[in-house]
Computed example of a mutant assay.
Amino acid sequence: MKAVLMTAAGSPEVLQVQEVPNPAVPVGNTELLVRLVAAGINPIDTKLRSRGTFYPDRTPTILGCDGAGIVEAVGASVQRFRPGDEVYFCYGGLGAHQGNYAEYTVVDERFVARKPASISFAEAAAAPLVLITAWEALYERGRLEPGERVLIHAGAGGVGHVAIQLAKLKGATVSTTVGSEEKADFVKQLGADHVIFYKQTDFVQAALDWTNGEGVDLAFDTVGGETFHKTFPAVRVYGDIVTILEPDANTVWKTARQRNLRIGLELMLTPALLGLEESLQHHAEILEQCATWIDESKLKIHVSHKFPLKEAAKAHQLIESGSVTGKIVLLISDD
């Protein structure tokens, strides 16, 4: 099969299309052989490519956590799927297990969800990591409740654009930061109630004005760096802030402590890194629920760019530019 191999840590040019052996057909277990149609591109992919994977002794490796495709064969113990079923999932790509920049992969049925019927494989492949991240950050780390006010940073981004929609589905009121009029129009179409142009406006003051000086109930940081600790005064006393980035060593915690904020750290890769199979099954359950919402037209996945498999390096260059709206996808076959 054709696959994009990461031959070493480094620039996007280390991603090379090569012929590699097909995965073994599952026999006597709960695994699925999936013919991949599309693979999502995420910032974690570029970080692993530039710094090295979590398992550097296993290079060369195939990156790509997100995949969507068609079940080709099933193990003897598989209960939920059969050949021909369309699926999507977030599995592999961290160095230990094959990722999805390839024509085929093998994944346990417990970690797979049925692809939403109403969207393309490209849209489905773009969805898993960002949906799970936003779901866990808002619903589990942030304990979002109906009627609460939420500040979501970078609402036009991959995680941000689904976070806006998940917050609205929960019954929250949403404010979000963007960098352009085009992105403002985009997030308003997703349901954002209040838009902050962070390049021209102090987002903290804007959030306080929006909440009559009280602060938001929950802030969701998808940017990191200074944005994380600068957000502390925008959150109400005893409120929540969740970040998907590791707090900087120079983070000033004084305001967070004074306001008695509850700090949430969200890393949806934890189950894969620690081998937590029940949590990986929970991820599949999240994707099943989101698939229902997608097919009910309550949730949308925005794909801004599509690249053929052989142009994975160009896709990495684009996502590293930092100006992408929505998601980027690799197209592996024509289905």
Rank of each mutant, 00 (worst) to 15 (best):
E86Y: 06
T292N: 04
L166K: 01
Q98V: 07
E86T: 07
T270D: 09
H302S: 06
A291M: 03
T176A: 08
E214I: 14
D108I: 01
T243R: 14
H305N: 13
G326M: 01
G92F: 05
W253A: 09
H305S: 10
L208A: 04
K310I: 07
I62P: 14
K188E: 15
L208F: 10
T53Q: 01
T222W: 11
L138M: 11
F197S: 13
H282Y: 13
L208S: 09
G67L: 07
G75P: 00
R35D: 09
D66N: 04
A219E: 08
G75W: 04
L169N: 09
E136V: 12
L63I: 03
G64I: 03
A117F: 08
V17I: 09
A206W: 10
G239Y: 15
H305I: 01
I332A: 12
L151Y: 11
T30N: 15
R236T: 07
K314L: 12
E31P: 00
R82V: 15
A137R: 08
G84A: 06
L274D: 06
L138R: 06
D334Y: 05
Y91Q: 02
I119L: 00
G264S: 08
G160R: 11
V162R: 09
A134K: 05
G142N: 11
L151R: 09
G157R: 04
I119R: 00
A249G: 07
P271C: 00
G239F: 15
L261F: 14
D209Q: 10
A291H: 08
E285V: 02
F220V: 06
T30L: 13
E320T: 04
V329G: 11
F232W: 13
T105G: 10
A8V: 00
L5V: 00
L138Y: 11
G147P: 00
H229W: 15
L274A: 03
A219G: 13
F81C: 04
D45M: 00
S175A: 15
L94A: 02
G322W: 01
W293S: 13
K306G: 02
R114M: 08
E311R: 14
L15K: 08
K199Y: 07
I241Q: 09
K230F: 10
Q189S: 14
S333H: 11
D66V: 05
V14I: 06
I70D: 10
A137K: 05
I119M: 02
F89N: 01
A124T: 03
G92S: 02
G69V: 00
I301C: 02
G67E: 08
L208V: 03
L63A: 00
T30R: 14
